[in-house]
Design a protein around this nucleic acid. Structure first.
Lengths: 225, 225
DNA sequence: AAATAAGTGTGAAAATTTTTCAAAAAAACG
DNA sequence: CGTTTTTTTGAAAAATTTTCACACTTATTT
C-alpha cells in the first residue's frame, strides 16, 4: 500500500487531507514545513508527496526544487487558484501534478493514483473487475452487485473471474473445466451449465452479462456498457 | 476494433466526425440527443462515447452524468472554448477527456487512443473483417451492420466469415458444406440456400453483398468491382 | 419466340441439437 | 453428524438446422 507525505503549514489542512487519504486506503506522514518534510522524506520514504505551495519561510516551490535535486519521488502541489501558476506548471512538466484548492477527495485520489501509476509506484493494491453494477475484488474474493454483497462458492467465483477477465472471449465448456476444475477433472460438461445457472441467478440483473454462445460455450459480454 | 458512439445535435458535425473516425478505422454509431444516445449505448455497446456538450434539451453534461450512474464507458466531451469549462474538468477527473472545437482528425484520434488505452479497452489482436458498414469480429463472433449488433447462429456466422474472408471468390455449395458443415455432412445442398437466405435477411442492406453465381454457387462481392 | 429444363428464393413445418432448469445424489467440510 | 458445496441426471424448453413444396428466375432447346 503506497505511503504519502503531506506537507502543509496548516494543521487543519493536514488533518483533512490525512482523513481523506486514510479513507482511500493510503498510509500518511505529515510535515509542517520544508525542513521537517525533507527529514520525513528520508525517514518514511513516501511513494508520493503532497506539497502545499503557500508556506511561510521556504515556499512549496523551493522545497520541491530542493527535493528534486536528490530525489525523484513524485510530487503533487496543492495550490490556490492564481498562485504562482506558471512555476507550478513548469515543474509539473517533469511528470508531477498539481491540485487546485478547494478539491474533493475523489479528485485528489484520482490524481494520486494517476501519478503513482505514471511513476510505476502502484503495485496494484486491488485487482478489481467492474462491469455495470458488478464489482469483483479478485484478491478478497468478494463480489458486489448493485451495491450489495453476493455470496459465491469457489467454483462459481473462479468461473466468474475467468469469464469477466476476458470479456468477449468465448470459452468452451472444456476450456472452462480445464481452467477452473483442472485438467484431471473427469465428469460431464453439464456441470458447467449448472454453475452458470446459479451464477446468473446470484448475479441478478448482471447475470445477463454471461451470454450463451450457442453450440460453442459461454462468454462475458464485451463492450463498455 | 473499437466502436464509437457520437452524440451531437448537429447532423453535419456527426457526419464530419463519422468520416474522420471511419477513416481512422473505427466503426461508428451516432445519436442526436441524450435519449437516443442512451438507447444506442445499450444496443451497440460502444467502447467510447464522443459527447457534444452544447445540446438543446439535456446538455452533454447531464447526459454524461446519467450515463455515469450505470456505466463506466469512457466519455470524451466535445466542447467549444469557454463552454462550461469547470464542469468538464471535474468530470474529466474520472478518467474521461475533452476536446476543444475546432479539432483536427489527428488530435481526435490521438485522444481517443489515449483514453481507450487508459481504460484498457485497446484490445489485443482482434481479427476484424470489414466491408462497408459490416464489421465482423472473428474471435468474439460478433457482427455489426450499420453500427448495430446482429445475432447470427453458428452456421450463419461461419458461412459469412468464409465468404467475407475471400471476397470475390466463388464457393460452390459443396465447398461451403465441406468447409462449414464438415466432410461427414450428408444432407441436401439446399440447406446452404436456406442459410444464405437468413444471412442476407439478417445483414439487412449488406445482405446484397452475398451474391448468387448462377449455376455455380455464392460469393461475397469484391470491393474493387 | 415459345417451350422446356434446371437452378434459386422463400416460408413454414419438422427434425435435431443444445441449453436450461429443478431436484436428487454424492462429496467435502467443519 | 449436519450443513454446505458440488456433481449428476433427466425432462422441459429453447434455439438451430434441415427438409420440403411451390413460386420464381435464368438458361437452353425447339
Amino acid at each position: 500500500m503506497p505511503h504519502l507525505l503531506i506537507v502543509d503549514d496548516e494543521q487543519d489542512m493536514i488533518d483533512l487531507v490525512t482523513m481523506y487519504m486514510e479513507n482511500a486506503g493510503y498510509t500518511v506522514s505529515s510535515a509542517l514545513n520544508g525542513e521537517e518534510a525533507e527529514t520525513k522524506l528520508k525517514e518514511d520514504r513516501p511513494d508520493l508527496i503532497l506539497l502545499d505551495l503557500m508556506m511561510p519561510g521556504r515556499d512549496g516551490f523551493a522545497v520541491g526544487e530542493s527535493i528534486r535535486s536528490y530525489s525523484d519521488v513524485p510530487i503533487i502541489f496543492l495550490t490556490a487558484r492564481g498562485e504562482e501558476w506558471d512555476k507550478v506548471r513548469a515543474f509539473s512538466l517533469g511528470g508531477d501534478d498539481y491540485i487546485v484548492k478547494p478539491f474533493s477527495p475523489g479528485e485528489m485520489t484520482a490524481r494520486i493514483q494517476a501519478v503513482l501509476r505514471r511513476f510505476g509506484r502502484v503495485e496494484e493494491k486491488k485487482e478489481m473487475i467492474r462491469y455495470q453494477t458488478l464489482a469483483i475484488d479478485v484478491h478478497s474474493r468478494t463480489v458486489r452487485v448493485e451495491g450489495s454483497g453476493v455470496q459465491l462458492t469457489m467454483k462459481e467465483f473462479d468461473l466468474l473471474v475467468l469469464l469477466a477477465k476476458k470479456r468477449g472471449r468465448i470459452f468452451s465448456r472444456e476450456e472452462l473445466l480445464e481452467a477452473v476444475w483442472g485438467a484431471e477433472y473427469r465428469g460431464g460438461t453439464r456441470t458447467v451449465d449448472t454453475h452458470i445457472k446459479t451464477l446468473r441467478m446470484k448475479l441478478k440483473n448482471e447475470g445477463a452479462s454471461i451470454e450463451t454462445v450457442w453450440g460453442i460455450g459461454y462468454k462475458f459480454v464485451d463492450g463498455a456498457v
